[in-house]
Design a protein around this nucleic acid. Sequence first.
DNA 1: TGATAACCGAGACGGTACGTCGTGTCTTGTG
DNA 2: CACAAGACACGACGTACCGTCTCGGTTATCA
Lengths: 199, 199, 199, 199
Amino acid sequence: MIKPPNPQRRSQKSHDAVLAAALELCAEEGYGRVTIEGIAARAGVSKKTIYRWWPSKGAVVLEALHEAADIAAPHPDTGNLAIDMRTQLAAVISFLSPPSHAPLAGLIADALSDPELAGLLRERLIRPRIAEFEQRMRRAQEQGQLHPDANLDIALDLFYGPLYHRLVFHLGLPEPEYLDTLIEHVIRALTSGEPSRSA
Amino acid sequence: MIKPPNPQRRSQKSHDAVLAAALELCAEEGYGRVTIEGIAARAGVSKKTIYRWWPSKGAVVLEALHEAADIAAPHPDTGNLAIDMRTQLAAVISFLSPPSHAPLAGLIADALSDPELAGLLRERLIRPRIAEFEQRMRRAQEQGQLHPDANLDIALDLFYGPLYHRLVFHLGLPEPEYLDTLIEHVIRALTSGEPSRSA
Amino acid sequence: MIKPPNPQRRSQKSHDAVLAAALELCAEEGYGRVTIEGIAARAGVSKKTIYRWWPSKGAVVLEALHEAADIAAPHPDTGNLAIDMRTQLAAVISFLSPPSHAPLAGLIADALSDPELAGLLRERLIRPRIAEFEQRMRRAQEQGQLHPDANLDIALDLFYGPLYHRLVFHLGLPEPEYLDTLIEHVIRALTSGEPSRSA
Amino acid sequence: MIKPPNPQRRSQKSHDAVLAAALELCAEEGYGRVTIEGIAARAGVSKKTIYRWWPSKGAVVLEALHEAADIAAPHPDTGNLAIDMRTQLAAVISFLSPPSHAPLAGLIADALSDPELAGLLRERLIRPRIAEFEQRMRRAQEQGQLHPDANLDIALDLFYGPLYHRLVFHLGLPEPEYLDTLIEHVIRALTSGEPSRSA
DNA sequence: TGATAACCGAGACGGTACGTCGTGTCTTGTG
DNA sequence: CACAAGACACGACGTACCGTCTCGGTTATCA
């Protein structure tokens, strides 16, 4: 993963079988009950092959998630920031529901005690989404829906923070109505008054 | 924990030794590397004794954390909401640093795939803090620092969400300056415009 | 084996099941194809239990063989040394046939590269047989069938050496007629001329 | 070995490197710890190349031993059978010492559960030595040092058996003095009385 | 003031999964 | 086309913890 021994020699068939098996097992058993042995057995692959290309169960699931790309809900741009953010946040929420079976929730859990996985998670999965988020914010700034000096780091934290706060403490992911209220507050925080500079 | 066999016969000495050992091992090895066997050995207690009183490693650490009470930084009330929230959030941040060794981070991780632990975490550790937070908010409302109709659920999510968002994706916990900006935005979101009712 | 953790707590049932499974599998598959995993599975026992009490597969089979005691053919004493040795050597030969399935042959093979097993094999299985052999020799000396100064170490090597020589080089274990000739020669070597002292 | 694919295309360089690596590793680690992977790595040769020409680790070591030829101590002929046999047996003993590192001991161990290797060992390494032994015995008969009807199979077993008996049960290979006594007994067995016919 | 029942330490037990190693086969690309 | 390099499926290794389960030995109510 970090340094594939020799990418050219890699068997595409095994690679794909592993990722498919990982997602299937996550769906059937929940991330927590998935094991590398189980993935290997389901994929018809030896454990050694998995260990050769991925450092941990989390790395496998992460790549599977990445390839499945169904997290890649791109930020819509209808011209209305509030509506677009609601669409986007709802997509993320459905991707995290139910927390007990959402592979991403499992990755978050493992990453909390595995710095290597944490790095992969951040760089491969999260950073690209943040970049897309920032693009959308900048378009909002151009369109005058957001103050041109709005702090985008703050924006990110305020929009997405509540989701993960509620996720980790099992407070229930936001319902649509609550989501609207939340977005309304965040946009207000970003547009009124004298905003600070982006970090 | 949920149903102690006979609370009266419980050995205080063993109980304390287990909790102390749990915290020591978390500090030394990190939550993830702590095992019930390790706790039992360190505490000079049999595994059976642990299983008699707690359902899981997480429950032990949770109770240890609860007794240690150093999370229980109560909300200060200097009359200035922004300053008090900064104090409070900084306390929580230091309690979560470094994430790889903070027992609470480990509990969050385990709770993501253990509904029983999730319930304990929410009810024993988090709900009381939320109650304290809401008390402080209500005082701010009485003092006119917050709109009397401010939505306190939203307030909670906006104040604390960014911490956990940054925690789970390893984006770095907020630095003091960033924290100030954040608080400034949140208070603005809660005070300007026409807020919605509390859920 | 060398230092049982706590013999009192040992489960007799598991102990017996392991030894029985070991012998069964040796008989079915041959010593070389027996694995600790296989023994554990057949015995309905965890691998850890085997590793707790025995250091190696060989040690298990050795103890099984020891308990089975069918190697323990005691030296007969009809008063005729040649006849008795033929009986005894034939018993050992049948115990080593066929070499590919005889557990003892497997033990010999493993012991050649495992000093710990070699020690167990020598002390538990072989030394007692040597002691019995020497008792029989001494009775022969008392009965005048053997020179009173006959060197019993030499006697042991001459009587049994040919068996193992033929075993290890797959020269075919001695047939009855050849065995008689052999015994005749050995007894002659031990009785004629001026023998040296026992070492 | 048994059926080389195409002896003409065989790379002499690889062939030699494999045999040299095999002997080096036996000397460094002991036969038991040598692996085909290790030999391939040391020799700078692919595993496939080894499997193409030899059926097993044992076959490689056997051929290496055969080529090294230092086992080929030919039977000396000073005219004194006892002295010559002592010289010869001492050479074999030194070749088997220490048993834990002697490649031949490893071959014997493997051959006990590998009929193919057993065949190679017997035919390539042992039969030629037996032939040399028998030549020497026949010269002894011609010189009157041995009865002309002495049974040479018996002679072989009596001379060499004790070595392997002591080897397999780790009773300690014979010391020089003991060796003399042994030879004395064997020659006596073969010369006195009325010997039986050769088989 | 015993009896008696719970808790206690110690740790063996059947399991599951781990991550590693070596096997023998197969594939790819080079000389 | 033999070769090196090494990926592959397989299977066993020996280890670590899990959660359950005896064991005797305190220990602390109650009879």
